[in-house]
Design a protein around this nucleic acid. Structure first.
Lengths: 156, 156
DNA sequence: CGCAACGTTTAGAAACTCCTGAACGTTGGG
DNA sequence: CCCAACGTTCAGGAGTTTCTAAACGTTGCG
């Protein structure tokens, strides 16, 4: 049988791993940890004080992080009758959204390469930019298809 | 007709834009700028002192950055007869490599979600993890296909 | 061989990001 | 309305990253 201590340790490890994923995606440390905590919450979400307690951070940090998470529509505020506190829950269907945003960068990069190619004189430089451009063009088209399939999948 | 000053300004803007792309991919500021400078070089590459002059940085910075760029096989050293300086050139075919590395993270994230799902008790949490897992599974498979097509494309 | 030209390493400083405590503003119950 | 409970803002500071100068090591020409 598993001790309460071991259970707690496993939970912490999981929270860390999840938070690292979010950090990799580009979120600040604490913001990532908050999102992870919301993922692992027992119920539908957590209140500010619950987050403060679980992660051992200040309420100012929660406020700042939520500015980002709510602003990017990854998390939603909601109220619980009888409580004055703000509660937060993850929004559904955001993981696809997160990845989709990543892909959007591809077409920007293709654009940069394209512009540079038009400006540059040296044939050697132009050749290097062309390779970059071709690769990103390829992935840009592929990602469009992938996202289309993803959206179709979600409609079902 | 275009003044030398305007030409210089355009070149700088281009270098900045390219560097930002590399930074987005996760490289340090100076490292990214060096890579951008190598991309825009007139000839096949640049020497240490040329990089120092073009970017206005110390040779120590060049040394450090090259440790990273050469180590990750994005840049190659070469020697120019008659010069004692080390020269550096971009390696070809790295952009696909860079993107490929990004995708590799997908299967790690899927794994994290899978592990967490097995550990967690709360049905609400498990449901949230399941969505995360499903999304990343989908993209993991799609990326494998995309990379396969990419590699086939390159063999021609 | 010895010297000069380079590259590398390292310790320290500068810059940046992010967190916190405290003060402030806002809101809702009584 | 007033007070208490919350959330937000902001100045300050801690931690981290990354750049540089200086000292050191290495290499190759004469």
């Amino acid at each position: 049988m598993e001790s309460a201590h071991e259970r707690e340790k496993r939970r912490t490890a999981m929270l860390d791993a999840l938070a690292r994923v979010l950090e990799q995606v580009g979120f600040p440390h604490t913001t990532a940890r908050i999102y992870a905590a919301l993922t692992l919450a027992e119920g539908e979400g957590l209140s500010t004080s619950e987050i403060v307690e679980e992660l051992g951070i200040s309420k100012a940090s929660v406020s700042n992080a939520m500015h980002l998470l709510v602003g990017t529509e990854l998390v939603q505020r909601y109220r619980v009758p009888g409580s004055r506190e703000t509660h937060y829950r993850m929004l559904k269907g955001v993981w696809g959204e997160i990845l989709g945003r990543k892909f959007a960068a591809t077409s920007y990069i293709r654009q940069v390469a394209e512009d540079a190619m038009e400006t540059v004189d040296s044939p050697a430089a132009r050749e290097r930019l062309r390779e970059m451009h071709d690769v990103y063009s390829f992935f840009e088209r592929e990602f469009e298809d992938v996202m289309k399939r993803f959206n179709e999948r979600n409609e079902r």
